[in-house]
Amino acid sequence: MSADRIETAAEAMEAEALPHAHVVHTDPDAKSTEDEPLPKSVTAKPQKAKSPAEWAYQRMVLYIKNFEEQLDDQHEIAMAFAGDASGVMRIEGMGYFDPDIITFYGTDPTGARTQLVQHVSQLSVMLRALPKGVAKEAPRRIGFRLVDDLDAQITVRSEPQKGS
């Protein structure tokens, strides 16, 4: 806000309700999650009304989607367990359990099914690009499905309930 503009009470309340983010890169043209406009599915419900799990889940969805948008057709998203020697998991699903649990579903490099259940206060994930499976025709993208799911949740919440 410039010094010569007076903010209305409504504008101040809206600015307070919206999440704030900031990023700086060595490459000024780098595409960053923090610089992208937030989808309606993230802003429809006030941040303060969300559980820590829901809020962490929504932001992870945005980071995953942004990371996948920068991958070529030969790579898929995976995550390494930051601060842990457990290895790498190809991300195939993600969820949350209120009030404070985030869950990642996937497979490790050997194809074994894996699941990470993590408390939001311990959330520390390194996103990685792994070569896609040899037998797969196209890389599988979870980020776009996650964003579609967020949008579908908004549609369901905004529709009138039967009997109302």
Rank of each mutant, 00 (worst) to 15 (best):
K45R: 13
T43D: 09
F104I: 13
W55H: 08
L38W: 02
P109M: 09
G83E: 03
R90H: 08
I77L: 13
G95H: 05
Y57A: 04
D98Y: 00
T103S: 14
N66M: 13
K65N: 11
D84Q: 11
G95V: 09
G106V: 06
A44Y: 11
A56R: 02
L71G: 03
D100T: 03
T43N: 09
V61M: 10
G83Q: 03
I77K: 01
G83T: 04
M60Q: 07
L71P: 04
R90S: 12
E92V: 08
N66P: 07
P46N: 15
Y96R: 01
K65A: 12
P99L: 00
Y63T: 07
D100Y: 04
I77A: 14
M94R: 07
K48E: 10
R90K: 13
D98A: 10
Y105M: 14
V88R: 06
Q70V: 06
D72P: 05
A53N: 06
V42K: 09
L71I: 07
K40T: 12
L71R: 02
K65C: 09
F81T: 02
K40W: 07
E76R: 06
A49G: 00
F81I: 02
K65M: 11
E92K: 13
S86L: 12
I102M: 04
Y57M: 02
Y63L: 12
L71V: 03
P46Q: 14
P46R: 15
D84S: 15
W55A: 12
A78C: 11
P52R: 00
N66G: 10
P46C: 15
G106A: 06
E76K: 05
Q47P: 01
K50V: 02
F104V: 13
T43R: 14
F104N: 08
E69L: 09
V88C: 05
Q58P: 01
W55V: 00
I77N: 05
T43G: 09
N66R: 14
E68D: 08
H75S: 08
M79K: 01
D108P: 11
A49Y: 01
S51L: 03
K50N: 09
A49N: 07
H75I: 06
F67S: 07
T103F: 05
M60K: 02
Q47W: 12
A53T: 05
K48L: 12
G106C: 07
T107G: 05
I101V: 11
Y105P: 08
S41L: 06
M79V: 14
Q74L: 10
V61F: 06
A80D: 08
D98Q: 03
D84C: 09
I102A: 04
M60A: 13
Y57Q: 02
K50P: 00
T43H: 07
Y57T: 02
I101C: 05
I101D: 00
L38E: 06
Y57P: 01
E54F: 02
D73N: 13
E92R: 14
Y96E: 01
V42S: 05
V42A: 11
